[in-house]
Design a protein around this nucleic acid. Structure first.
Lengths: 225, 225
DNA sequence: TACTCTCTTCAAAATTTCTTCAGATTTGTT
DNA sequence: AACAAATCTGAAGAAATTTTGAAGAGAGTA
């Protein structure tokens, strides 16, 4: 069983490796983004441990590449950030699991074991939120088994909100998220308003309570108890 | 909240500033090393964004100077270099965070929020002050689980007071904070009076003791034992 | 090309918040 | 006590923000 450890902190990488070797796994390392990308595209691993905070690039890109190349490696994201948004995004991109630092090595080993075992069977990634059922792989939303047909941007928005529930998200952040631009200030939020309106409408028409609250002068918030 | 943007690329500095301004931060710029050094030693900021590649000197020197002078400003390093050593060195010299170019402005804003929160309040996103519970992310205030609905300016005011509790805040500082401008001596504080009044009213009506005391002729103070 | 679906833009309407104002009240001073 | 200056207050108009429907632009497909 081969494991690739993509992690730039040498001590952490080393102790993970030692533990896993004692569990009879073969370990390899990648420290930088480019190194990771090269190994991932060239070889095949039973499981990849992916630290998102990499020097040289966004770890998510590794996931995207794996998906693009239809690779079957199992992936566990390791992140210092505990952002649910990252988790959802990661799972969305095909990661199998998500582990926040710090963690116990035994916990990691357990996850690796179950990822490798589970890889033989397929299992859909479904998130249940309030009355909504969201299939991250199929990118579909349903409510009590009735589908809610969303456009891509609406689906993205919904995930973004749910991944950040009970937090106010500024219009800026929404605009950036929807447009996907880097460091570009947008001075017009009309398209944000439009997508929010449409999303809200579809959800309420499908019988979903209104969890998407306006925070006047700031942004929006998915409000949950 | 005042941010100093030490960055020699005008476009990047500009879009950062616009973004942060729309998120209610006050921004100042420094373009050269000497200018940065002067501002940093003369004024105080809630957060300093520091580009390491500066004309006229090594950005790390700014960090060293801050440390030498025992300044409490939060610092986020922004760098085109992805060098792990830079990151480590920066963190050693007291930087709070490190961000590689290119980055999303919302990511930057999130880091700034964390840095300021850690310095100003706690590590948690919920601040407990007297009987008030303030959720910084949800931007909500509640008292014994009953929500107190505040407008944006009222919420800002409350945070400002609590972040400076037991300190008298001048009307001028309040006016500046509320208007979002570096305003010199305004001759009219009516809007300050109005916001204070409304905030006080909402808090006391929700059952909060009156901690917000008038300091006749000077300003106001959130008084705590 | 024509068709369809999605995204963005636009402008008017609705809503919420902010500021101003003028009179009332409080505080400090003589 | 009397006066002046500072602060408080409620109301109303002003300003800013959001909502909305519709129209135009763009992307993808047959």
């Amino acid at each position: 069983m081969k494991i690739l450890i993509i992690e730039d902190e040498p001590e952490l990488a080393q102790s993970i490796a030692e533990y896993l070797q004692s569990e009879n796994y073969l370990c390899e390392f990648a420290v930088t983004f480019s190194e990771a990308l090269e190994k991932v595209t060239t070889y095949e691993y039973n499981c990849i441990l992916l630290d998102l905070m990499l020097p040289g690039g966004d770890g998510m890109k590794i996931l995207e590449e794996l998906k693009k190349q239809d690779k079957q490696d199992g992936v566990i994201i390791i992140s210092a950030k505990n952002a649910l948004e990252d988790k959802i995004k990661g799972l969305h991109l095909g990661a199998d699991d998500y582990l926040s630092k710090p963690f116990h090595l035994s916990e990691l080993a357990a996850r690796i074991y179950s990822v490798i075992r589970r890889r033989q069977f397929t299992n859909a990634n479904v998130v249940q939120q309030n009355e909504l059922q969201i299939d991250l792989l199929a990118k579909t939303v349903s409510i009590h088994n009735n589908p809610v047909i969303l456009t891509k941007k609406e689906f993205d928005l919904l995930l973004y909100f749910i991944g950040n529930k009970n937090r106010v998200i500024s219009k800026n952040a929404l605009a950036e998220h929807l447009s996907g631009d880097f460091a570009d200030m947008l001075d017009n939020y009309d398209f944000v308003y439009a997508h929010i309106k449409n999303l809200k409408k579809k959800l309420t028409e499908a019988g979903c309570d209104n969890y998407l609250k306006t925070v006047y002068g700031t942004g929006y918030k998915w409000e949950n108890d």
